[in-house]
Design a protein around this nucleic acid. Structure first.
Lengths: 238, 238
DNA sequence: CGTTAACTTGAATTAAGTCAACTGTCGTGG
DNA sequence: CCACGACAGTTGACTTAATTCAAGTTAACG
């Protein structure tokens, strides 16, 4: 992870905001709305391993400019469930005051842009393109979360890990034919907390996939999926 | 379940559509948009126990006029995970062509109104009120799904059942002080398929809650939550 | 009031968790 | 640039919570 040693500069608010607009919707947005959104947003630099300080009073809408994050839900007795990972260019919502308490934590040095959801929607009322873009991202998040529910509710450890790897390959992998290289920014503990498994079980199942010839690993974070189709089958997908 | 014996008449498309509009957003919508939405929508009557025939080619937006439904995701080997329950007045999305195949199934005789999501959004572009209402419902669904992920990933059988009961109390219970009556439209199998447990485990845990004095049951579907706060504690909520 | 399916309870099994020891990776400092 | 230390990850042995299989009960409907 060479970028951890290189001193990285936080992006300026302007650059971050521009990237957010470009990524959100491929449409022209009225200047006054852009101005108001810009004033509403707050650029946040989250160091690798630390958590974002979000307003606990209101839901937050977060854009990840660069880096990667995990969204953690905590139940009582200190148990943590990672509810979603997010990567550069993605938008997510963090609820305030829910049944479980949510924390946004950076897996790598991360540039983020934060809006209070309520005010954001008020401003953006007149821009259907933005609303629809947001709605589509929200559907995507819901579908991912449902897939996770299936994995957590009805799949065994090996299928969960296979699902995870195939899902990550889809999002941050570099595919070539039916092979795919992954550089995972999260630890085994994070993977376990995401799959509802212990770190030991994750490790054991990864070893099994390794000896089945489905994956190879290099160091701690690099993984080669040797046969994505076969892995998808092990994941219990249709 | 007396309404199963009474022959129920499917609501007319007009009544259903009107209820949908009233429930969605408390705003005036342009007449031509109402007309186009009305033409796009399809009223569907789903008998207790049978599944809705949705277009497998496109995502569906579904409004439940009356009744109750379960949204089932199927993984390979015939395993089923109930991803969400929906009751009268609610709106949901059913994805087509996802990793797992989704089925909408009625827990009671159900009146529903179905739109293809894509066309719906095209028509509704000019109505920010509708888009925002949809966005908020989508956030609610996402938050519920995340809570479910926490339960499935990090809670034991008893906590899951307690979460389920408290959650249902919130949505379809009749509360009085800290007590709450529930008339569950779903079977023990449905509860198990929703909580990632077997029917036997659900039964055992319900018996435990019963002997702990936290719930009482009458017949198969009526449940009295004797102390919702205490039950919430057992659910691992904060 | 009898039949059927839903539910409950019990005993045996198993997948994943826990606890513990060991190994490899990676970054720092000599 | 190499060696060391610390921590992330792996592997093994044992335990446990939930599943599976099996045998009753009970509720709901005709």
């Amino acid at each position: 992870m060479s970028n951890r040693r290189v001193p990285v500069q936080a992006a300026s608010h302007k650059n971050l905001f521009d990237a957010f607009l470009r990524g959100l919707a491929d449409i022209r947005i009225a200047d006054d709305i852009i101005f108001r959104l810009s004033r509403l947003s707050q650029a946040v630099w989250i160091n690798h391993g630390s958590i974002a300080l979000l307003n606990p009073e209101s839901d937050s809408l977060v854009y990840i400019g660069s880096g990667a994050t995990k969204l953690i839900a905590s139940a009582s007795r200190g148990r943590e469930q990672i509810v979603a990972f997010h990567f550069a260019g993605e938008v997510m919502t963090v609820p305030a005051g829910a049944l479980h308490s949510y924390t946004l934590c950076a897996l790598a040095d991360t540039d983020a842009l934060v809006f209070p959801t309520g005010e954001f929607l008020d401003i953006v009322r007149a821009e259907p393109g933005v609303l629809i873009a947001l709605l589509q991202r929200s559907f995507t998040a819901l579908h991912r979360c449902r897939d996770k529910a299936v994995a957590l509710g009805r799949k065994n450890a090996q299928e969960r890990l296979a699902s995870f790897l195939v899902g990550m390959a889809d999002r941050i992998g570099s595919a070539k034919a039916d092979q795919c290289w992954l550089d995972l920014p999260m630890s085994r503990r994070d993977i376990g907390d995401s799959l509802g498994l212990t770190i030991e079980t994750v490790s054991r199942q990864l070893s099994e996939l390794r000896s089945a010839g489905l994956v190879e690993t290099v160091g701690r974070s690099r993984v080669l999926l040797c046969d994505v189709t076969a892995l998808g089958k092990r994941a219990g997908h249709y």
